[in-house]
Design a protein around this nucleic acid. Structure first.
Lengths: 110, 110
DNA sequence: TCCATATATCAAGAATTATTGATATGTGAG
DNA sequence: CTCACATATCAATAATTCTTGATATATGGA
């Protein structure tokens, strides 16, 4: 992950409709959801959601697989992991006692 | 962390000058850096950087302390931790075997 | 082939955000 | 008090991004 990629991912997530879509897909797990269901669930128009899913995909945060007439989207764990790693990279300038609590306190609710 | 707070933090980080400033402060550790030095280091104008630091601060990603005539800024670990936690909240819909690798693979270089 | 469904693309206007020069505020020194 | 330095605020323009209606593409079924 480099700065342009991180900016692309952060910009993608910095709009409410896209943040909601991404989080919905995170909650949906590996199965993902078809585009139409994402739009319906979040109360968005079809073409707006299509554009937003495309932006999330180009940012590497979600992936898609065609399934008949639908296209199913999935959260891309590698993508979000890359972003999180980039944000905490070189944290605390090499002082582990300041840095260690950063990640260990993020509770993964699974 | 709720959605408005997360959007505020993500928007703050989604611009190159601010992302660079935030990462510089992460690398600087608890000591932080004075505003002027941040602007000089990153080649930004004084008032632009002042605005950007203000945006990062309102987003809860950095803090400031006055030090004589200067104002010293510091990364706010609680802030970034809150954002990271929000992004992976409820990941994988409760399937730990998919979710666990997410955080454990973020190498903290300290 | 023709139709219906699902999703994507396009173009234009609306809204938001960034940048800049000018100026204001706050602090310490003399 | 006045000056110099450090940072913040303001207002206007520039640039970017969002939304929307219309339309295009892709797939499967009859």
């Amino acid at each position: 992950m480099d700065t342009p990629d991180a900016l692309s991912a952060l910009s993608a997530l910095s709009q409410e409709a896209r943040l909601n879509a991404f989080r919905l897909l995170m909650r949906a797990g590996p199965t993902g959801l078809p585009a139409g269901e994402i739009a319906t669930t979040l109360g968005a128009r079809q073409n707006t959601m299509s554009t937003n899913l495309s932006i999330l995909q180009h940012a590497g945060l979600i992936t898609s697989t065609r399934e008949g007439r639908s296209i199913r989207y999935h959260a891309n764990l590698d993508g979000i992991r890359g972003l999180l790693g980039f944000l905490v990279e070189d944290c605390c300038g090499g002082q582990p006692e300041q840095c260690q609590p950063l990640l260990s306190q993020i509770a993964c609710p699974c």
